[in-house]
Write a protein that binds this DNA or RNA. Sequence first.
DNA 1: CCTAAATGGGACAATCATGTCTCACACACA
DNA 2: TGTGTGTGAGACATGATTGTCCCATTTAGG
Lengths: 193, 193
Amino acid sequence: MTRQGLMNAAGAVLARNPGAAMADIAKEAGVGRATLYRHFPTREDLIRALVLESLHQIDEATQQIPVDRLSAAQVLAEIVEAIVPLGDRFRFLSSEPIVLNDPEIKAAYDRQLDELGDLIEAMKAEGSLDRAVPTAWVVAAIDALVYAAWHAVDDGAVARRDAAALTFRTIMQGLGLADPASTSPRQGRSSKT
Amino acid sequence: MTRQGLMNAAGAVLARNPGAAMADIAKEAGVGRATLYRHFPTREDLIRALVLESLHQIDEATQQIPVDRLSAAQVLAEIVEAIVPLGDRFRFLSSEPIVLNDPEIKAAYDRQLDELGDLIEAMKAEGSLDRAVPTAWVVAAIDALVYAAWHAVDDGAVARRDAAALTFRTIMQGLGLADPASTSPRQGRSSKT
DNA sequence: CCTAAATGGGACAATCATGTCTCACACACA
DNA sequence: TGTGTGTGAGACATGATTGTCCCATTTAGG
C-alpha cells in the first residue's frame, strides 16, 4: 500500500468521523495497523500530512487558473470548481486543533485566506460583489458552502457535476430570482434601516 | 450549579471541540466532574439533552411566527433570525452519531427538515426561490450558512446584529448585485450548457 | 533459488476518558 | 446547634486508543 493510498483512506474515514482511530483508518485502507504506523509514526503526523496535502492541492489547483485572462468572478468560479471535491478535508481542517497549533499549517492556511480575501476585494472593485457585504462574511460563506456542496454530493442529495455550479451560483447570485423586492422582506424590523 | 448552566457550558465547549471530555465540560461550568455526572449519568445523556433542547428551542421559536400573515420568504427570514444564535448546537448535531441512532431525536430532526422543505417549496411557489435549484441544496445551504453565521459572530468577524440579515440575504439574493451578467461567467465550460 | 524489504498479526505498556464510589466540607434550614 | 442535601476532590476499575516491538509470512528482485 502506497503512502498516497493510506492518505486517501484516512481522508475518507476522517471525513465521516473526525475522531476515527488509527485502527479504523488502517482497516479502511485494507492494511495492518502496524503498516500505517510505519508510514505515519503518529496520528498527528498523519493528520498533518493530510492537511498539508489538502492545502497544497488547493494551491496547485488555483495556480493553474489564468488569472490575467479572467475576471475576478471567473477566477472564483474556477476556484470553487477546484476545491469542492476537496470539501471533506477542507472541513475537518477546521475541527482539528492541530491546524491552529502547527505553525507551518497555520501560515499556509492564513495565506490562502488572505489570497481569497484579495480576490473578494477585486470582485468588489469590478462590481461583481456588493461592497456592503463584509469580506469576512464572503469568506465564511464560501467556506461553508464548499463544504455543504461536498457533503450534499456525498449524501447523494446533489449531483456531483452540479455541486460547484450551485455553490458558485449561491455565492454570486443567491437562490432568489434577483427580484429586488424579495431580498428585503423585513423592512419593519431590519437591524440597520 | 443548575442543570441549565451545565448544558450551556457543555454547548459552549462542544461547539469548540465536539470531542471534548466530560472533565472539560465540568471545568468550563466551574463544577466538579462528579457533579456533572450527578445531573447527566452518561455523556450520551448530556448530548441527547443538549440536542433535544436545541430542537425544542427551534420548534418554539418557529411556532411563534405568524405564518398566515407573512410570505414564505418572510417566514424564512424569521426562522433564520431565530436559529442563528443556536448555530453552534445546530452543527455538532450533524457530527454526533447519537443523533442518527436515537429514534426520538431522529424523528424530531427529520420532521424539522421536512417542514423546512415544505417552506422552501412554498417559496418556490410564490416565486421567491428559483424552481431550478434543488430543494436539497437550499436546505443544505441554509444549514451551512446558519452555522457559518454563528461561527463568524463567535469569531468576532461579523457583528451579532448583522449575522441573521447577512445569512438571509445570502440565501435570498446572494452576494452579487443581481446583475444577470455576473451570475454566469463560465459559459464556455459550464457543465450543463 | 535466495535474499532483503515490506507486511500482517498480535503482544505489550502507557495513556486517557468513562463511570462509580467514598469522604470531607460547606451551606441552608429548622 | 444539629441535620440533611449538594458539592468538590480524588481514588478506582474498566475499556479504548496510542505507540512500540517482535516474528512469521509474503513479495520483489537478483
